[in-house]
């Protein structure tokens, strides 16, 4: 009996180890392009032309350093080897205005996320806990629009925004991002699972309904709020079509649009393009690393599933 169990345990551990090895390989495939991109963004043009596949720029490779120390010709003699390490990054900012695009993207994403979280929390709380006329109808209407592909909205949203005189402006980019049915749905599912007795206790203690929401419901909903915040931020940061349609002034471009422009302008100067791309993806990666531990919990607790 005990040996059998130990055998089963050992097999399970072996299975776990094998799965880990296979998955590490897979994860390496997923992350390799970024490692490559960071490495390439540190290369000089000469280095990139001579050595496209290494992850470490030649002038930092140990054997090149040794050669240099021995006085042999090495990558450290190539033109540009004495440049500052982050030369491509400063170039991307100076010539490509990547810092402007970055700031724009950050602004759009932060504003959209903040407004969506605030509005959707209120609406979702009302849908989950308060009864008012037309609640069921409104909620199902909201859900129905989630099925529509955004392409349907592209043209008429542009007409609305241009009708409001907001083409080529900050508000024009952000406004359509504020309306999100998915957030209301996700939050409502989560709120429904919070025990009602907690809220009633808060009400007995003299909290207003807003107070109950703020002091009791929201602290309990941190996983789902982080998840929704992350998804909204990601969606806003990555949105490409809408800014492309509504903007023509480059000063308002977000990073997604700006980067494709920068790429066209830079020709084949890949290290510089990659420097821009690294700067463009780092904020999101950092945010994701901070928020990821809530991710699975947030999705699973809110009961998001098919039918």
């Amino acid at each position: 009996m005990t040996t059998a169990r130990r055998q089963g345990d050992g097999r399970k551990r072996r299975a776990g180890l094998a799965a880990f090895l296979v998955m590490s390989l897979g994860a390496a495939v997923m992350v390799y392009p970024y490692a490559y991109m960071v490495g390439a963004s540190l290369k000089t043009r000469r280095e990139f032309a001579a050595d496209r596949h290494s992850l470490v720029p030649p002038r930092f490779q140990i054997d090149q350093r040794l050669k240099h120390a021995r006085g042999e010709p090495s990558a450290l003699d190539w033109p540009g080897a004495d440049w500052p390490v982050l030369k491509n990054y400063t170039d991307a900012i100076v010539y490509g205005q990547v810092d402007v695009f970055l700031f724009n993207s950050l602004l759009y994403a932060v504003v959209i996320t903040a407004v969506q979280l605030a509005i959707n929390t209120l609406a979702a709380y009302a849908f989950a806990r308060m009864s008012f006329r037309g609640r069921g109808v409104l909620f199902s209407l909201l859900l129905a629009t989630m099925m529509l592909p955004p392409a349907v909205l592209l043209v008429p949203q542009f007409l609305v925004v241009s009708g409001l005189g907001l083409v080529d402006s900050f508000m024009g980019v952000v406004l359509p991002g504020f309306a999100g049915a998915f957030g209301v749905f996700l939050l409502r599912q989560f709120f429904l699972n919070i025990p009602r007795s907690l809220e009633e206790a808060g009400r007995l203690d003299g909290c207003s309904s807003l107070g109950v929401l703020w002091h009791i419901v929201l602290p309990l909903s941190r996983p789902v709020l982080v998840t929704l915040g992350l998804f909204t931020f990601m969606g806003a940061w990555n949105s490409f079509v809408w800014p492309l349609v509504v903007l023509s002034d480059q000063a308002y471009y977000p990073l997604t649009v700006g980067l494709s422009l920068f790429r066209e302008e830079s020709g084949a100067d890949w290290p510089r393009i990659f420097a821009g791309a690294v700067m463009g993806s780092m904020p999101l990666i950092l945010l994701f690393l901070l928020a990821q531990r809530y991710l699975v919990r947030g999705i699973s607790l809110s009961g998001l599933k098919g039918q």
């Binding site: 994860a27 990555n238 990821q292």
Partner: peptide, 14 residues
């Protein structure tokens, strides 16, 4: 591993 596999989703399409 999960984080690494999810990373490409996070990074912008551009």
């Amino acid at each position: 591993l999960r984080t690494m596999i999810f990373t490409p989703v996070v990074v912008s399409l551009a």
